[in-house]
Computed example of a mutant assay.
Amino acid sequence: MSLAFRGVVDEMLQTPNRPARQTPPPIRLSQNEMPWAPSAPIVAAMTAAIGMAHRYPDYHRAAAREAIGAALGVDPDRVAVDNGSGSLLHGLARLVCEPGVHGVFPSPSFEAYNAALSLAGADTTAVGLAEDGAMDMAAMAAAIAPETRIVYLCNPNNPTGGLIGVEGLRDFLRRVPASVIVVLDEAYREFVTDEPVDATAALLDEFDNLVILRTLSKSHGLAGVRAGYAVGAPRIAEALRRTSVGFALNGIAEAALIAAFSPEGAAIAEERVSTIVAERDRVVRTLGEAGVPVLPSQSNFLFLPGDTAALMARFEAQGVLARPFPNAGGARVTIGLPAENDAVLAALL
């Protein structure tokens, strides 16, 4: 460094800092995350697990499967656990798909379905939604061909929030050949209020080809930890466990999952979900009174149909990060804390 340049640097370092213009952080409502940090019992369990990080976690994830089984009233042999439900839906595609077979999924919906089928070498059919943003079950059934081996259902659907009730699912499952695995992705099931949250669990006893996927990313605020589970027939759950990457569920995630299903962890999650549902209803009611179009939602997000670019510009003006879906003709915004939702309303009203 030259003496002249060093002098300039020294002068810059000695110059008192001028106050910079403060830009508020964006309101992050683009990823369907919960607005709270993990609850105290979960944090305590994860903190304790750090002290055992020099040991491998349970390869068979037995304690986690037992916690889930006890909470859902199913045998742990029917449960498979992995680092997020996304890993499980990919695993199911790998189990039954190869070049020449066929998979069906709704669209627009969770992008991972098409990715999982494509990576497994399967041919695919994307089925459009009904006008209310729920899946078109008649069209889904019609898309099943002799070579079909797997069907993905997203319920409530992401990004639109539409729900097919348990009777609609039962009617669909009766039309599906037993040789076809039906993957019911219920990532947002805890936010459903149109019917009991556990209503779909009864379907597992009726249909051996049904697999229900759920995640702790949403209701328990564990998106950064990665923990999800599948419940289905013992043969399918065992196949998922056998083909899963060893130790994929790390010890800290397992501790978080077990704590989430404890009575205290479950109670806190239920209270937080109730808060989000109340805010969802408030936002929908306010938008409806103002004549702003919004699809009915049973999730922790809303889909606003309209010009995507215009919607995103209005959100940006209020500092709101939303998710654009130009192919679906609109934008999706997560329900957050009341002040965050007020910013959403300010953008749209």
Rank of each mutant, 00 (worst) to 15 (best):
I50T: 13
I50L: 14
G51F: 10
G51E: 12
M52W: 00
M52C: 07
M52E: 15
M52V: 11
A53H: 07
H54I: 09
R55D: 04
R55P: 00
Y59W: 08
H60M: 00
A62K: 15
A63K: 01
A63Y: 00
A64K: 00
A64C: 05
R65F: 06
R65W: 09
R65G: 05
R65A: 13
A67H: 05
I68D: 03
A70E: 10
A71Q: 08
L72I: 01
G73A: 03
G73M: 11
G73T: 07
D75L: 10
P76Q: 06
P76W: 11
D77E: 15
R78A: 10
R78D: 04
R78T: 06
V79F: 02
V79I: 13
V81I: 15
D82S: 08
D82K: 01
N83A: 15
N83H: 04
N83C: 13
G84M: 13
G84W: 09
S85D: 13
S87Y: 05
S87W: 04
L88R: 01
L88K: 01
H90R: 12
G91R: 01
G91C: 03
L92D: 00
L92S: 03
L92V: 12
L95F: 03
L95G: 01
C97N: 11
C97G: 14
E98D: 13
P99C: 09
G100M: 08
G100Y: 11
V101A: 13
V101T: 15
H102V: 14
H102K: 11
G103C: 11
G103S: 12
G103N: 12
V104W: 04
S107T: 15
S107D: 14
P108F: 05
P108D: 04
S109N: 05
S109C: 14
F110D: 15
F110Q: 14
F110T: 14
E111V: 15
E111R: 12
A112I: 06
N114R: 13
A115L: 08
S118Q: 05
S118C: 03
L119V: 08
L119A: 08
A120N: 04
A122G: 06
A122H: 10
A122W: 09
D123N: 11
T124W: 05
T124G: 03
T125W: 03
T125F: 01
T125A: 13
A126D: 04
A126C: 07
V127A: 00
L129I: 10
L129G: 12
